[in-house]
């Protein structure tokens, strides 16, 4: 309980100290990665990260605004100041950490899954699809597996369906609902443990904002509301 009050107080102080610098915090997301973030029927950003981001902003007493951006240019547009934070299912990696900073992770590290048309695909000799600039694409290249990169997650799945690739490597939470809805597609038993959990990306010079969000994430971890949100959207394992 003491911890809870301390973090809440910290969040409040940080939020107030912040008010003059950032009266509006702009959150950048991709909007094409259900259930993490996607556009609903009204064209609004929705999903796990929409609810999470709104709750974090409410706890940190920030006014937040949502912006969608192409995945490929999502980091350059953060550092040049078009928005203030990335909240787009982005895994924390050393490579990205050199360019931007991350908040503490709001989902635990989860293994990535393969999805293919049949269960007996041999990954080492296969052509595997992955989204460009993802931990999965980097992992495949490092392992020496032939990787086909695509701009959107949708394209990677389409490549498996039309035979261009033998399998796709992505977060299980993204592939799961797709495999469930399509009888032709199966999730392979083989998984890969990559990534350090998902966090928000913040400019390296924006330490105050990072601390504000860290405190808000911690308070959601402490009162269990983060776990509830993760369970509701089935995006990851819980803390």
């Amino acid at each position: 309980m003491k911890l809870l009050t301390t973090t809440t107080a910290l969040a409040l102080v940080a939020g107030m100290a912040f008010a003059d610098g950032h009266s509006v915090v702009r959150l950048g997301t991709e909007g094409a990665y259900a259930p993490w973030n996607f556009l609903d029927d009204n064209g609004e950003v929705a999903g796990f990260e929409r609810e999470l981001g709104d709750e974090l902003c409410a706890r940190a007493e920030l006014t937040c605004e949502w912006v969608t951006n192409d995945w490929d240019s999502i980091i350059p547009n953060l550092v040049s100041g078009n928005y203030d934070a990335i909240i787009a299912g982005m895994s924390i990696t050393d490579e990205r950490d050199e360019v931007i900073d991350f908040t503490t992770n709001y989902t635990p590290p989860d293994p990535s899954n393969y999805m293919a048309l049949s269960a007996d695909v041999d990954i080492m000799g296969a052509v595997v699809a992955a989204q460009v600039n993802t931990i999965q694409a980097a992992f495949l290249a490092e392992k020496g597996i032939t990787v086909l990169e695509f701009a959107t997650p949708e394209d990677t799945v389409a490549a498996v369906k039309n035979g261009e690739a033998d399998a796709v490597l992505a977060d299980g939470s993204y592939l799961g609902p797709i495999a469930e809805a399509d009888a032709d597609l199966v999730i392979l038993e083989q998984t890969e443990s990559i990534g350090g959990g998902v966090g928000m990306g913040i400019r390296e010079s924006d330490g105050d904002l990072r601390e504000t969000f860290n405190a808000a994430i911690q308070s959601m971890k402490d009162d269990g509301s983060l776990n509830a949100l993760i369970t509701k959207w089935e995006v990851a394992s819980t803390f």
Binding site: A32, A34, V157, P177
Partner: peptide, 21 residues
Amino acid sequence: ARELGATVLPRFSDYPHGDWR
């Protein structure tokens, strides 16, 4: 066109459909 044509699962929309791109 890409966004609207992309597969939509019933969980995430009232109008689910396959790959209509």
